[in-house]
């Protein structure tokens, strides 16, 4: 062995031991971090990632007795069937219409409410109003729908009131033309107060000196709201608009599932409710999975796009 080879061998041995030593000291310090992540990661793999593997049944004729691995492959059969289904277009349209309607009405209401709450000077009143307006957000849709069904029954509170005007309150949940409005307004009732929080935070961040200067120049309060507060929260409105894009396929399963019935399927049946009925009531697992896959893929694209837009135009970061 030449001296050159000898020295290089010694050197590589030395680097090896130094790498090993570095790795050992890294692990000695950092191993708890891996142990900490482990439980969450394992649960995530079992309950989030393994079901993604189960998506393969959209391309199979899934038979519960055969399982994910043994069921026969059928290619795109279920997707072809789905596209021929006359209800599929209807489901898509209903989902989009309801989701977009809900976003628009909710955000406009929330912005107006935030302006009104922001004009209140007395702290006590501000707190009381906030507390009352946030409350419905914390009630489940089972409770809200249960109350709504009672209010809209023949001799319920709303039913009696409308009966006095000669109207039938059943139309709200039993008439396909009215049902979307029932969904939109009950959603606004539940979430409007809660949705003001982000706008209120933006409003309090506006420098009050601007408003004072405008007041000195003779601007009245409506003018100040219009020319100072509205532009002041414009970035927040843009942010919410971007993020809302991610939700235009979420028409609100929990709400609609508790409010709808077969008479309003024409306007009230959405992708999520159809997936539930096809899959868990009629046991057409593969078809339901195929429809669900279309929805979650589009949803993924939309949410990614929404985050990208929010990061680009509103400086928003998830982490």
């Amino acid at each position: 062995m030449t001296t050159l080879a000898k020295t290089s061998a010694v050197r590589s041995l030395a680097t090896q031991t130094s790498i090993r030593r570095k790795a050992m000291s890294y692990l000695a310090r950092s191993w708890p971090l891996y142990v900490m992540v482990l439980p969450g990661l394992v649960l995530l793999l079992i309950f989030n990632y393994y079901p993604m593997y189960g998506i393969r049944i959209a391309f199979q004729d899934y038979n519960p007795a055969l399982g994910f691995d043994q069921s026969p492959w059928v290619g795109l059969k279920h997707f072809e069937y789905m596209l021929k289904l006359p209800t599929f277009r209807l489901l898509f349209r209903n989902t989009l219409m309801l989701a977009i309607g809900k976003i628009l009405f909710l955000q406009v209401t929330a912005i107006v409410l935030a302006f009104m709450l922001n004009e209140i000077r007395m702290r006590v009143f501000k707190r009381v109003f906030n507390q009352i307006l946030y409350l419905p957000h914390f009630l489940s849709w089972v409770i809200v729908a249960g109350i709504l069904l009672d209010l809209l029954s023949a001799n319920g509170l709303v039913g009696r009131f409308l009966g006095g005007l000669g109207l039938n309150s059943f139309m709200f949940l039993g008439n396909a033309a009215f049902f979307p409005w029932t969904v939109i307004f009950s959603h606004v009732w539940k979430e409007a107060g809660w949705s003001t929080i982000i706008y209120l935070a933006a409003l309090t961040a506006i420098d009050p000196q601007i408003s004072e200067a405008a007041a000195v120049d003779g601007a009245n309060r409506l003018q100040r709201i219009w020319y100072i507060n509205l532009p002041g929260i414009a970035p927040t409105i843009a942010l919410i608009a971007c993020l809302s894009l991610g939700g235009i396929l979420d028409a609100g399963f929990e709400q609609i599932f508790n409010l709808y019935n077969p008479t309003v399927y024409a306007t009230g049946d959405i992708l999520d409710t159809y997936v539930y009925r096809a899959g868990l009531i009629s046991a057409r697992f593969s078809l339901a999975t195929a429809i669900g896959l279309i929805k979650s893929t589009l949803g993924f694209v939309l949410i990614t796009l929404a985050y990208w837009l929010a990061a680009k135009y509103a400086n928003y970061r998830v982490f």
Partner: peptide
């Protein structure tokens, strides 16, 4: 790992595979 968690927030297997998984 952060992206592994992030992705699970943006995409899911859907109702039926999730249900079948819990049942299995």
């Amino acid at each position: 790992l952060l992206y592994v968690f992030m992705f699970a927030m943006l995409f899911n297997g859907g109702l039926i595979p999730t249900f079948l998984n819990v049942r299995n």
